[in-house]
């Protein structure tokens, strides 16, 4: 392989746990770096996405900014990967989907226990919340999914090497977990 593959990653409504798991592949990240070049990613601190081969996203879509970033990734990445439970199903942030959004905001910022200075934040800088937290595949087309909360370093590493080697992705039974 002459040219390195470009990879971008981001966390939307996630907890960065999936990124931590990515870092958990330890020294093998050095092998990876031989093969890939990171574009936008919390690992590089680049803020915009250029044309990439692979985009990896953790977290679901909870606000308008998430949607923008997700669209941007879809527009720029040849392959888009949903990484982790939140990206696949909305995960823990999507637990709020069972409630009315305003009821959630009131509970957090107005009526909840221990709230000081009650009031729902309304700074125009803040992106507005979506009515429901959406899994990524409900917003854009996703090419690959890696379940887990977080997916183990093992799964992520295997997945990436398979993609890089152009092999079909096949997550073995022993590596599938939703928790």
């Amino acid at each position: 392989m002459t040219e390195k593959l470009k990879v971008a990653t981001t966390s939307l409504a996630g907890c960065f746990g999936c990124h931590m798991s990515l870092l958990d592949i330890d020294t093998r990240i050095m092998d990876l770096v031989q093969l890939v070049e990171f574009d936008r990613s919390p690992l590089t601190d680049i803020k915009t996405v250029g044309k990439c081969d692979i985009g990896i996203i953790e977290g679901g879509a909870a606000n308008t900014e998430n949607i923008e970033v997700l669209q941007m990734f879809r527009d720029n990445c040849k392959i888009l990967v949903s990484l982790g439970a939140c990206a696949l199903n909305g995960g823990v942030p999507a637990m709020r989907n069972q409630f009315d959004l305003n009821a959630c905001l009131d509970e957090s910022f107005v009526n909840g226990a221990g709230v000081v200075n009650p009031g729902v934040p309304d700074d125009p800088e803040l992106p507005s919340l979506l009515d429901k937290v959406q899994p990524l595949h409900e917003v854009v087309k996703i090419d690959y999914y890696i379940p887990g909360c977080p997916p183990s370093a093992e799964v992520i590493y295997d997945f990436l090497t398979r993609i890089l080697e152009g092999k079909p992705v096949d997550i073995p039974y022993a590596q599938i977990r939703y928790d």
């Binding site: 199903n89 989907n97 069972q98 409630f99 429901k132 959406q134 595949h137 409900e138 999914y145 599938i176």
Partner: peptide
């Protein structure tokens, strides 16, 4: 796990809690 469900498919119904 047994049937190898990796990919979420359908739009969630999001029933109220």
């Amino acid at each position: 796990y047994y049937v190898g469900l990796l990919t979420p498919r359908y739009e969630h119904f999001n029933p109220p809690g």
